[in-house]
C-alpha cells in the first residue's frame, strides 16, 4: 500500500465537496470524507437512498466531484455491479479510463435491512467493488426509526422508550460477520475514533481486487442525542468500551485494529447519549438492561477474540 501522508492528502480535492446539506456535526460526511482520503485512482460512487445521498444531491447542485449515481434505496449493491460490469465491457475500447474504482455506500437502512439482498448478491458475484456502510444505527432520513442495526435498549421512533417498553427489545444483527460469511477478500469494521483507521481500511478495501465491505459506525447527533461536536469522542467510547470493536478480515484472517488498554464499561458509552436516557432515570436506573448490554458486549468480544485466534492458526 502506498504511504499515507496527511499533508499530501490536504492537497487533493476529495470526492465529497463543500456545500452538502448534512446536519452540522453529522458523522456521515466525516466518514465519507475520511473514507476517500487515501484513494488515488478515479472513482465512481453509488449511494443508496438515505441522508447522505439526499443531502449531497439537492438539485440542481451536486456535492460529488466524481461521477455519482443514486437509483433507489434497496439496490446500491446491484447498481454498482452494473456500473462495474459496464466498465469491464467498455474499458477495452479506449472509451473510458482503465483504472476506475467502484464504491457504493449506504446507511444501515440501505445496507443492513432493505438493501441486504442486493449487497449479498454483489458480494457473491465477486464484482471488483467496495461497499461502505455508514452505520448510524437507525433510519435517520425518515426520522430516527429503529433498524436491524439499532442496539438493544436504544430509544428510536418506532421502538420508543415508553411507560412499558424500554426502547428496542432486540439485539442488532452483525452485518460485518454476515459480509465476512460471503468469503470475500476484505471486510473491516471501524468508526470515527481515529481518522487513520478509516482512511487505511477503505484504501485497502478499494485496492483489494474483488468485493470488499467496510462497516463504519457514525454518530447521528439527532438520533443519538449528543452534542454534534462530540462525534469523535462518542466514537472513541464505542471502541474503548468494546461496544464497537475495530478490526479487519483480510483473506479470512482476522486482525484487531485497536485493543483498548483499560476497561471502560459500556455504561459510559450508553450514558453519553440521550437515546439511552431512559436507562439512567433518577430513582429508576435500569441496571438490568445496562448489565445485559455489558454481557452482550463481553460475549461479542469473546466471539471476536476466538475468531481472531482460530483464523491465525
Amino acid at each position: 500500500m502506498s504511504g499515507l501522508n496527511i499533508k499530501e492528502m490536504t492537497k487533493r480535492e476529495g470526492p465529497l465537496c463543500e456545500g452538502h446539506r448534512m446536519c452540522p456535526g453529522c458523522g456521515a460526511p466525516t466518514a465519507v470524507r475520511q473514507a476517500f482520503m487515501g484513494i488515488d485512482d478515479p472513482i465512481v460512487v453509488v449511494g443508496a437512498t438515505g441522508c447522505m445521498e439526499v443531502s449531497s444531491t439537492v438539485y440542481p447542485y451536486s456535492a460529488w466531484r466524481v461521477p455519482f449515481m443514486h437509483v433507489a434505496f434497496e439496490n446500491a449493491g446491484a447498481a454498482i455491479s452494473g456500473i462495474e460490469s459496464a466498465h469491464k465491457a467498455l474499458r477495452g475500447r479506449g472509451m473510458f479510463r482503465e483504472n476506475i474504482k467502484f464504491v457504493a455506500f449506504g446507511g444501515d437502512g440501505g445496507t443492513y435491512d432493505i438493501g441486504l439482498q442486493a449487497l449479498s448478491g454483489a458480494l457473491e458475484r465477486g464484482h471488483d467493488i467496495t461497499y461502505i456502510c455508514y452505520n448510524n444505527q437507525g433510519y435517520m432520513n425518515t426520522g430516527a426509526q429503529r433498524s436491524g442495526a439499532t442496539p438493544k435498549s436504544a430509544s428510536a421512533t418506532t421502538s420508543p422508550a415508553g411507560l412499558k417498553l424500554p426502547g428496542k427489545l432486540q439485539r442488532p444483527k452483525n452485518l460485518t460477520e454476515i459480509a465476512e460469511a460471503h468469503d470475500i477478500p476484505y471486510v473491516a469494521q471501524t468508526t470515527l475514533h481515529n481518522p487513520m483507521d478509516v482512511i487505511t481500511k477503505v484504501k485497502r478495501a478499494v485496492e483489494t481486487k474483488g468485493p470488499a465491505f467496510v462497516n463504519i459506525l457514525v454518530p447521528c447527533p439527532l438520533f443519538w442525542k449528543i452534542d454534534p461536536a462530540d462525534q469523535a469522542q462518542v466514537c472513541k467510547l464505542a471502541v474503548d468500551s468494546r461496544f464497537w470493536p475495530v478490526y479487519e478480515v483480510a483473506d479470512g484472517e482476522y486482525k484487531l485494529s485497536y485493543e483498548p488498554k483499560k476497561h471502560v464499561p459500556v455504561e459510559d458509552f450508553l450514558k453519553s447519549q440521550g437515546r439511552y436516557a431512559h436507562l439512567f432515570k433518577r430513582d429508576a436506573v435500569r441496571t438490568d438492561l445496562i448489565e445485559s448490554a455489558q454481557r452482550d458486549v463481553d460475549a461479542q468480544w469473546e466471539k471476536l477474540k476466538m475468531r481472531i485466534q482460530s483464523s491465525q492458526r
Binding site: 463543500e18 456545500g19 452538502h20 446539506r21 447542485y61 456535492a63 466531484r65
Partner: peptide, 14 residues
C-alpha cells in the same frame, strides 16, 4: 436524465 454537474454544491452557502 436528471443530470447535475460535479461539485456544483460549492455554490451553496451552508
Amino acid at each position: 436524465g436528471t443530470v447535475t454537474f460535479g461539485a456544483t454544491s460549492r455554490e451553496v452557502e451552508t
